[in-house]
């Protein structure tokens, strides 16, 4: 699965796209949710957990914590930006 990073998430993770090779990172469960992905990324990059509003899109649609994701999905991490 590919994760596109925007705004400060790009700075935190240090790249503009992240490739997740397989489902193994999440353990053995077959279906994965946005919540599980968030928890995993939060462990890898603790700074992400500080973001109080972080929108997550799955295949260009806004996703909730319980949205199911699979290996072929394109994920985007979208924090709000404030500059003008």
């Amino acid at each position: 699965m590919t994760i596109l990073l925007f705004g400060i998430t790009k700075d935190i993770i240090g790249t503009s796209t992240l490739s997740m090779p397989s489902s193994s990172e999440f353990g053995s469960k077959k279906s994965k949710t946005v919540k599980e992905l968030k928890d995993y990324l939060g462990k890898m990059y603790p700074e992400l957990k500080k973001l109080s509003s972080l929108a997550i899109a799955v295949n260009n649609s806004y996703a909730n914590d319980d949205t199911i994701i699979d290996n072929f999905d394109e994920i985007a991490l979208i924090p709000p930006v404030s500059g003008g």
Binding site: I8, K50, L51, S52, S53, A55, Y62, P80, S82, G83
Partner: peptide
């Protein structure tokens, strides 16, 4: 609906004086 909660000061390191390339705005 996109960003339910206002980010706190602590989570925006550079705040208003974040850099920006001139043509982007």
């Amino acid at each position: 609906c996109l960003f339910p909660n206002m980010p706190s000061l602590e989570e925006i390191p550079n705040c208003n004086d974040n850099g920006v390339l001139g043509v982007i705005p």
